[in-house]
Simulated scan of single mutants.
Amino acid sequence: MYDYKVNEDWYHLSRYNDHPQFISTNRHIMQGMLDLKMCQWVASNNSLVGISEVIQHDPYEILIANNGYQIKRVNVNRGVVKIVNLDQDISKLVIQSDENKQIHWEVKYEHQL
């Protein structure tokens, strides 16, 4: 299980999977429950895919546990995305948009290390 400190008062606990998985977002104390509309691992494509509600001009952050996989590339259907590696196994997607929209995102991975 991951025990990732989100801030000084709140934690998010997730069951460990043997593939990359969503941890949380920066949008709400509920850490993605309101803004993350869909997130799933697509094993046939080695991809973590999702749909998020993004607010214009406000960086939207998604924390991901890579669980031994290495990120190959990140795609969004609109806006701009960058990846920030927080440590060896935790990465943060940062999505920026010029409008309030649902953003479809995909993190494509290399085979497991």
Rank of each mutant, 00 (worst) to 15 (best):
V76E: 06
D18G: 11
E61W: 03
I62C: 10
N77V: 01
L113K: 14
N7W: 04
W105H: 05
I95F: 08
L13A: 14
P59Y: 07
I29T: 12
L86T: 07
E106D: 08
A43T: 01
G68N: 03
Q102N: 14
N46G: 01
K37Q: 02
I55L: 09
L93E: 02
V42Y: 03
M33W: 09
I51D: 11
Q112M: 08
L13V: 15
H28A: 15
L13G: 14
G50K: 02
I83S: 11
I90A: 12
D3Q: 06
M30I: 12
P20Y: 08
F22S: 01
S97N: 12
D3R: 06
I103F: 09
L113N: 15
N66E: 11
A65G: 14
K72A: 01
H111F: 03
S97W: 03
E106Y: 05
S97E: 12
D18E: 13
I95L: 02
D3V: 10
R73F: 11
H19F: 14
W105A: 04
Q88Y: 11
D35L: 02
L34V: 13
N67H: 08
I90H: 11
N85Y: 09
Y11V: 13
E106K: 13
V80D: 07
K92H: 06
K108R: 02
V42E: 06
I71C: 06
S47A: 13
S47D: 05
Y109M: 01
V81W: 02
G68W: 03
E8G: 15
Q102A: 11
Q21C: 13
I103H: 07
V42A: 00
L36A: 00
N66S: 12
D35W: 05
N26W: 10
N75D: 01
Q31L: 15
I64G: 07
N26R: 09
Q70L: 05
Q56T: 11
M30P: 02
D3L: 12
L13D: 09
P20F: 13
Q31H: 15
M38C: 00
E106W: 07
I95N: 02
